[in-house]
Design a protein around this nucleic acid. Structure first.
Lengths: 228, 228
DNA sequence: CATGTATTAAATGTATACAATTATACATGC
DNA sequence: GCATGTATAATTGTATACATTTAATACATG
């Protein structure tokens, strides 16, 4: 579980900078800081009880994450995620999750395979029982296991980026029971393709899984994360 | 030309931090700082005539770029690019350049299309004349035009990242005349597919273009950028 | 001689002070 | 009334000082 945690190696959580980074990041992803809002170093530092230095460093990092835009001598502003951005990310992920599934066919360990199977079983169980709360976390976990299993530091890093970027969007999308049910079926199909070592099938299924998720998102009008 | 420049919007070049960021980045990519070498804030600051503050900020950003690893309370170390990393990047790029070409079919502007055509003509000309020096830059330019034409901020950003990451590798790979000739032919095919609006073909050609480039790289034993 | 420990040195982490830049308010001129 | 210019305030950019942590060294001990 901790093994597939969202925690990123980068930006240690125990330094002030790391904490500030994580805090601002979450506040942006949770909509506490709105699009185009200015993030003033002194104000944030005061709120968190730290000096400007760690705040500055955190903001500079968030710039590279694409969550804030820094205009020299002006300040840091929250860069919103547009509807097109969301669409682009899903299409990009469709390709990359496909590639990830393909590589997982070759590189998945016995332990990871068992984790994945267990994840699918659990999801099916909770879905049948109507425990919707657990499903979001299980969905998270499924993808993290997949990212680990592809055995590519770079691809994993990239997919984690996008995955976290869309956290808010995804939470809402999985709220609808029908999508959750379908999603789990797709997870099972992907899992079985990987277990069978069928790379072509696994790639196609994982890719379609993303396309379908996005289709569901659009269908429910949830594509604009700042409107709903 | 300037329009398709390598310059990144992020990390302004005119602040000290931006300059330090760019400098260290280039020094790593050019092999001046070797793999696992420690980058000490005070030393670098002294060499560049600035204080530790902009150096620190630059290092923290480079961490997110994946070029350095920062161990808390220990220091910043150059993270090398392994042979597997290079392979992974080419495979990832194969997918993403394909997607990029697909989107370019729909979104390319008349002006961009003309730039691309001109680029191919010029490359063919210089190739025939044996002007190898120009080809690397033209190859750069071709891909940058493509990244612009896809009209996706996110995809462009991602591909630029990988593209710059592999700068050194690519320069060497294009050194062989045979590959340069083939590469230009592939550029022409991609260009014509985009002009014809054939998205499926464009995607496949752009994807294969990457696969072939990597194949050439391996064939010439250039995959380990730290050995050769 | 090897090993463990205390001391010292050096590096990073953070806070603060100062400089440079930008935004705001208000006055002045047309 | 509107534009423009200037003074002031606020904010970021950078440098430096201090705190904390880690690494290195010397030395004592078995």
């Amino acid at each position: 579980m901790a093994k597939y945690d969202l925690a990123r190696e980068v930006s240690d959580k125990y330094s002030l900078r790391g904490m500030v980074f994580t805090k601002i990041r979450e506040d942006i992803l949770n909509g506490i800081y709105k699009e185009h809002e200015e993030l003033k170093e002194a104000k944030i530092g005061k709120e968190l009880g730290v000096s400007r230095t760690p705040v500055r460093e955190a903001l500079r990092q968030l710039e590279l994450e694409g969550l804030v835009q820094i205009i020299p001598n002006r300040g840091a502003f929250v860069t919103g995620i547009s509807a097109k951005d969301v669409q682009d990310i899903y299409m990009i992920r469709a390709r990359l999750e496909g590639l990830c599934a393909r590589w997982a066919c070759e590189h998945i360990t016995r332990e990871q395979m068992e984790s994945m199977e267990e994840n699918v079983y659990l999801a099916e169980f909770h879905s049948a029982k109507g425990h919707m709360e657990q499903l979001a976390e299980l969905d998270n976990q499924f993808h993290h296991i997949l990212y680990e299993a592809c055995d590519s530091k770079l691809l994993k890093h990239q997919l984690l980026d996008y995955h976290e970027y869309l956290l808010r969007v995804r939470r809402k999308a999985l709220g609808t029971q029908t999508r959750a049910t379908v999603s789990i079926k797709e997870h099972r199909a992907i899992m079985e393709a990987i277990r069978a070592g069928n790379a072509d099938l696994a790639e196609r299924l994982a890719s379609d899984h993303m396309t379908n998720a996005y289709g569901n998102l659009v269908q429910n009008g949830l594509y604009d994360i700042y409107k709903k």
